[in-house]
């Protein structure tokens, strides 16, 4: 081999985009792939959709297994599921480049496209949410006492409906993670096994936190009912923490860069891990172990923190994905087997 043809695999970076010192190769440090355009509309949808899905699941479980004490949980859960879901299609449609063409989403069902699956899931789940909420309103007597709609609604099999709806609830709560994972974005795709569970877990934790918050604020439930929800919250948060740590470890040093340095890393560390997980975890543990603690206040506080953490988690995951898509080294690391 003629020596003169041997190359140095390096490119001199320009002033504007300094190539990180460790970069072996890069094209002026320009991104290899294009990032998604998703911003706050989608982040809020991820958050609200999660709450809706989780609330529906909790309401159903409470309905099936909770006994009479859980009536309130079921009630708030069903309303919250619908309430949190209602803005979702609006957010999603507004996020489209051509909102007036939103119905094209229902032109096909593609099982390998999480967005297609999710859109159908969301549509069907919306029906269940609406139905269950209607049944709830009938139970709550909002349709009067002996009207025809009330009788009709009460005649519906609310428990089987709930079970079916729960299946779609899980889908709506979890598909968002799969949606992110099924892309070329290194930070998402690398954790394709964990993002679905993570989003679903967060859906459960935020939903139970939201229900707690509602129950606390309307001061109409027993301490024991709240305790049950907090228990669920605790389990979900712990699982979330485990998933997050596993996900981070799985990324490796290059792809995880957005979560390690810079503003996003600070939000991740202090907002998601600190305020959203560790702090509520501490507060909840305190209320569990120390019986004299002001349980309602602490419960409300931790719920609030969980909600903030859930929102920040989605913000960080979406934005870190964008940052990772912009980082050619992350793409190269992801698309280069050892």
């Amino acid at each position: 081999m003629d020596i003169s043809y041997k190359r140095q695999w390096e490119t001199r970076g320009s002033r504007r985009r300094a190539v990180p010192a460790e970069a072996p190769t890069s094209y002026y440090n320009l991104p290899v792939i294009h990032k998604a355009h998703w911003g706050w509309l989608v982040i809020i949808y991820f958050f609200l959709g999660g709450i809706s899905a989780g609330s529906y699941v909790i309401a159903t479980v409470a309905d099936l297994f909770g006994g009479p004490d859980a009536r309130r949980i079921r009630q708030v859960g069903r309303y919250l599921a619908l309430g949190a879901l209602l803005p979702s299609p609006v957010l999603l449609i507004l996020d489209l480049g051509r909102p007036e063409r939103f119905y094209r989403m229902l032109r096909v069902l593609k099982l390998r496209s999480p967005m297609s699956v999710g859109t159908w899931g969301l549509t069907i789940f919306g029906g269940f949410c609406g139905l269950s909420a209607l049944i709830q309103t009938a139970e709550d007597g909002l349709f009067g006492s002996f009207t025809l709609p009330r009788r009709f609604l009460l005649a519906l099999p609310s428990k089987p409906i709930g079970v079916l709806g729960t299946l779609f609830g899980f889908l709506v709560g979890g598909y968002t993670g799969v949606l992110l994972a099924a892309t070329a974005v290194p930070l998402w795709a690398k954790n394709y096994l964990l993002l679905g569970p993570l989003f679903l877990t967060s859906a459960m934790s935020t939903a139970s936190a939201a229900i707690v918050l509602v129950l606390v604020s309307i001061r109409s439930t027993s301490h024991r009912t709240l305790k049950r929800l907090e228990r669920l919250d605790l389990i979900a948060i712990v699982l979330e923490l485990v998933l997050l740590l596993a996900a981070k470890a799985n990324l490796g040093p290059i792809i995880a860069r957005p979560l390690q340095v810079g503003k996003l890393a600070r939000v991740y560390r202090w907002g998601v891990l600190g305020a959203g997980i560790t702090l509520p975890l501490t507060l909840l543990s305190v209320t569990m172990l120390w019986r004299k603690a002001p349980a309602r206040l602490l419960g409300a506080l931790s719920s609030l923190l969980v909600l903030v953490g859930g929102l920040l988690l989605r913000y960080v995951m979406v934005e870190a994905g964008h940052a990772s898509a912009d980082d050619p080294q992350a793409t190269f690391a992801f698309a280069r087997k050892p």
Binding site: V32, A36, L96, G97, R98, R104, M105, A184, G321, A335
Partner: peptide, 16 residues
């Protein structure tokens, strides 16, 4: 047909 959902954009491993 396209309604600009933008999902194809991060789904392309080559950034096309």
């Amino acid at each position: 047909i396209c309604n600009g959902c933008g999902y194809c954009i991060p789904a392309c491993p080559y950034g096309v």
